[in-house]
Design a protein around this nucleic acid. Structure first.
Lengths: 211, 211
DNA sequence: ACTTTTATTGAACATCTGTCTAATAAAAAT
DNA sequence: ATTTTTATTAGACAGATGTTCAATAAAAGT
């Protein structure tokens, strides 16, 4: 349960943007993050208290409040790292070449692999007890990919249209697949998921104009 | 802010299923629900404590735990009532007559009106601080409508296909519009929202197979 | 190395949480 | 109307929360 894997390393690498920050701050935050990961191996996020997190991290509880508001603040950092990883996977070279349905499919397959890789975390992100915050973090990331695809396709089809609703529609549709995957305990294989996606994009929607 | 309106009355009507229940239980729960509504007029859900809720409702704090686990348990009741109202609006007569895109549009327009009517509540449901629980309640409700439409359309187009992913895809796509609406502070008029939806369903998706 | 700046600490505080008692009061059953 | 059942209560408990304080320690700046 809850394999930290390389993410653990990542967690100690985010200093990039905090590079010119006080070493004590970095140490405190790292200790808290690492302690959270440890606790997550044995209990759900919602049952972890600030007090026990600080005890394990050997951080004064008062110090905690200098950095975070609650335990979610600490976990949020991990989600941000993961979502940045998803971000990075989109800046790969072959991405800029082909468009249309193959591109969309390739993009979605990337998302599936990404979620599978960080399954332990996404199990928490989609947990009904956690705040919507994490969902929106993921939503915003996928939405920014979707904007490119949609805006471009729209430029040719329906220029001048406000695309905000369309983009959110498409983005959340994809997240709907991830929700379904989550609810089926990630039992569906990525191959099967791809097939499902292909079928969905093919019949495209039962609301197709000339259905 | 937070007009209770007729929902307040509804909250005291759910005794239908609790009809043969101890009067004291009903009274306790009603008092707590009413107190929550009062508090919500002045502060966000996440900042309401069990202690102050019980003080206002004149209910012993120990009694609270005999009925609910946390404040969300009380609010959940309201969301269930609201979602049941959405449910009811789907069992209207003209619903069974026409199908296809007009039906879908008619259905979605119903959802838009419903959300606008209970805007104060949906502002909380989509708040990033509240648990996913409420989102899933709404998701499941809309999903059950969607199942009908999709399964039927699928029966003709692609019989034998597992429709779970498709239904969740379509359901969450609609919720994507509601999320966008929420993020734009419900400023978009229902007419404009309908137009957006129509455009989306028309170009249907930038992933259309022969785009 | 020395000084300055600032993050961390321990301690205390009122309040909240979750759970448990025995006593009471209010329903339901007869 | 009386008995039985059961929900509510007050009180207490250990632990958690969120905030504040002066004292300390550890960085950064020189």
């Amino acid at each position: 349960m809850f394999s930290n894997g390389h993410l653990f390393l990542n967690a100690f690498n985010i200093g990039v943007k905090n590079l010119k920050q006080d070493l004590r701050i970095i140490k405190t935050q790292e200790n808290l993050r690492y302690a959270l990961l440890k606790l997550l191996k044995s209990k759900p996020l919602e049952s972890i208290t600030i007090a026990e997190l600080c005890r394990l991290a050997k951080i004064n509880r008062g110090t905690f409040y200098l950095h975070y508001k609650d335990v979610h603040g600490v976990f949020k950092h991990y989600v941000e790292v993961i979502v940045e990883d998803l971000w990075r996977s989109y800046e790969e070279p072959y991405h800029k070449t082909n468009y249309k349905i193959e591109k969309i499919q390739a993009d979605m397959i990337k998302i599936f692999h990404h979620v599978k890789e960080y399954q332990d975390f996404y199990q928490i992100v989609f947990d009904e007890r956690v705040p919507m915050m994490y969902y929106y973090l993921l939503f915003d990331t996928i939405r920014s990919f979707m904007r490119e695809s949609v805006d471009e396709a729209l430029q040719r089809a329906e220029p001048g249209m406000n695309s905000d609703y369309l983009i959110s529609y498409q983005t959340n549709a994809i997240l709907g697949i991830l929700i379904e995957w989550h609810r089926q305990s990630y039992k569906t294989s990525i191959q099967e998921l791809n097939k499902q996606l292909f079928d969905i994009l093919s019949i495209n929607s039962p609301f197709r104009k000339n259905d």
